[in-house]
Design a protein around this nucleic acid. Structure first.
Lengths: 259, 259
DNA sequence: CCAAAAATGAATATTTTTGAAGATTATTAT
DNA sequence: ATAATAATCTTCAAAAATATTCATTTTTGG
């Protein structure tokens, strides 16, 4: 898809007024609402705008509702994965939690652990774990990504590099059939790589949707991971790879108490 | 469910006024109360608001009641001080905001500034300013102090040392009669000193209560500060010192519109 | 110039949002 | 406590917005 000459002006109006309406844009450009809708969809796909009924608004214009709703997606699966993962985390260790809704769910399940040193680049994880008094929290600095409360960039990698963790619990955007872990943001990839290299052990938490998506930037391969927590059995080829790598795969099925 | 045009504005009003009423929102948007109720439910589901009979309020941040109360203390004075301070802050600069309820109030007043680069070691400032899309936010890492959401320690100082700010807006725990700025936490003092040394200009925001307290650790003297914002005239001796140091003192009195 | 690709508009089917009416629940005053 | 009032929830139909499909126009590359 190439881009339309209207795009810059739509974005300009959105910047100025905070929002754009389909009707007004159609009148403004002298095209049908159909065409404007296509423009807005494209701009939303490109992450430039957030689509709403009747028009579009600036992404994260007030605070990221998209993320809050995404958190609700697969919430049950995530909660189960998180509980199983947290059950494998002992007390009295140093721990890293990275960006992602699933790692946030893990944090929720660590509220009753004792004597943890938790380092994170996720502002939400920090606020969640603040409720656990038996837990020292260190936030790695960096540029705040409004989309998900993540901290990324060189500052973050530098901060992470100063630690050595007993365990890292990480999420990623996608996992491909060859067992490569992928992410959308190249800056986050750098951070994740540093985390893994600074950890004695690493757990990956990923709901099944991660196995059917793709993303452009490679973090590492599953061979670098010690345990995988997910909610659905892996495809045979991938499962074989994991066996070869000695990866402990914990499958926590959708709903044992049948719904 | 997709989101609505109204959501950002509802959240904006909630931010400004602390609460929203169903009736008033319905009138404001020209829709029925039913529709507003749906909006408020959705926003509450997303964790952005807390539902109450007749409207909604800002969600009570789970932890730290003590801090919330302290924030309420001298709230009016702080709001006036913050507004006056923010009025002196231009667009298009790099800016540091440190720990403290008054600097958080300043952050509230920066929501409509353009093109700021804000660095902070205060997790609350970061979440407040996340609502301003024209503002890049960098969080200096460090150990999380639950008491006030502050980040302190060597990691913080190291991060701060990598920047040079056009302006620093800082608070402190106490100011003594000799014009020394004091703090309770020695770790925070180190950070504050680094901040001041890395800034071209520095503003101090401090309500009157700071001038009658004491604290053990010295940050620096007022002679290093360019402008002071407070709500009550200084004692004559201290005022004289400030004059000698060329410190611009902005006194914003309790209530000009007589109460 | 022509053919392929892309953009647009129109028509229709689908989904989402909205307001209205009645049932239910919470709050207030007695 | 109990009744009166206000707010909320539930359900459903109308309206609005959107997605989908296909024909038409415009652009692009040979």
């Amino acid at each position: 898809m190439s881009q339309s000459f209207r795009w810059p002006e739509i974005l300009d109006i959105a910047q100025r007024e905070g929002k754009v309406s389909v009707e007004r844009l159609a009148a403004h450009f002298g095209v049908t609402t159909q065409t404007i809708r296509r423009d807005l969809s494209d701009l939303a796909d490109a992450g430039k705008l957030e689509r709403v009924h009747g028009g579009a608004i600036l992404p994260s214009s007030v605070s990221n509702i998209g993320y809050e709703m995404r958190r609700g997606l697969h919430a049950e699966e995530k909660a189960r994965i998180a509980a199983a993962c947290a059950a494998q985390i002992p007390d009295d260790i140093s721990l890293f939690l990275n960006i992602g809704t699933t790692t946030e769910a893990v944090a929720q399940n660590l509220l009753h652990h004792k004597n943890l040193l938790v380092v994170t680049n996720n502002i939400n994880v920090a606020t969640i774990l603040a409720a656990n008094p038996n837990c020292e929290i260190i936030l790695a600095g960096g540029q705040l990504r409004r989309a998900d409360g993540g901290l990324v960039g060189k500052l973050t990698s530098d901060a992470v590099a100063q630690f050595k963790f007993d365990l890292a619990v990480i999420g990623c955007s996608a996992i491909d059939s060859e067992g490569d872990m992928l992410d959308f943001d190249i800056q986050e990839v750098g951070v994740s790589q540093t985390i893994i290299s600074q950890s004695r052990r690493a757990f990956l938490v990923a709901d099944r949707s991660k196995f059917t998506r793709s993303a452009p930037a490679k973090i590492t391969t599953l061979s670098q991971i010690d345990a995988l927590f997910t909610d659905h059995p892996l495809d045979a080829p991938l499962a074989a790879l994991c066996r070869d790598w000695g990866l402990a795969t914990h499958i926590i099925p959708p709903s044992s108490t049948g719904a």
